[in-house]
Amino acid sequence: MPQSSAQNDSAESQPGVNPRPLDLVERWMQSVITHPAGVAAGIASDAAQAAIPVSPDEVERVVTRSQALDSIERLGVYANAYYARLLECLRDVFPIVARTLGEELFDHFALGYLQKYPSQSYTLCELGARFAQFLDETRPTEPDAAAAEAGLSPDWPRFVVDLARLEWTVGQVYDGPGMENRQGVLADALAAIPPDRWLAARLQLAPCVRLLLFRYPVNDFYTKMRAIDRADDDDPIEDDLAIPRPEETYVALSRRDYVVRRYPLAKPQYALLAAFESGATVEAAIAAAAADCDLSDDELAVALHRWFADWTADQFFLSVAFD
């Protein structure tokens, strides 16, 4: 830093002659308006004091008052807007988590998140990137008596984590790369691969395909919540927000014509696609699917044929490669 803030502060009686360095003013203001306990606490915080050591009583030496508002009230306009704006953004990114938790609980988590992981990106599109991770990190692990009484599984917070992962991934698929201007692998192209080469083939998933494994049936819950949102006011669907029982579920997300689509998967389907995602050959992928499957070999062969037909029709595969 060019000079100590204490030195600088002593020069403040002559504004303009020796103004505070701009970076100190900015560090001070940012610390003040982003402090979770408000402006006065922000002014007293170590970060703000390190930049400009003024007390709340002396703040007019930094920020002037208007006829209608004093300096702290004026800073409060920015302080209120800071959390309100970012909370609104998180509610837009995680609308179903927000509705499920209720406003108060969602805001509580979101405020904690914004303090632990403040935005460092030029775009708000990244704001929710670590929200599911944060919920997982802060998830209570002790059994919760109130939850047990309500008939909830002890690890119900994982449901919220799963739901947040689903909503975040939906947004990523929506605005990420897609197949709208590309041709994926067609069913005919797969059928034309000679049987002796087929087992050694590697199928690359389309960039918009995401595979998700959940501990709770969050995709069904998501569908139900959206139906409630879309229902007519005259013909509402009963609002049942009960958290479902834990059940391992699998979902693929993809996009067609710029609209995100959700594909519930059976466990062997997930195993097969996840193997392709990690670069496995068709042979290894089928082995992975078979390991997670109670179908007979013949039944699995029939099922595989149908799955590949459906997935190629939905542009799940970008390319086929051979070693």
């Binding site: 970076d23 560090r27 807007a81 704006r85 708000l124």
Partner: peptide, 13 residues
């Protein structure tokens, strides 16, 4: 500042 973005349009002296 300091790597953070408040996503607000803040004034300078």
């Amino acid at each position: 500042v300091a790597g953070r973005n408040t996503h607000d349009l803040l004034p300078i002296p």
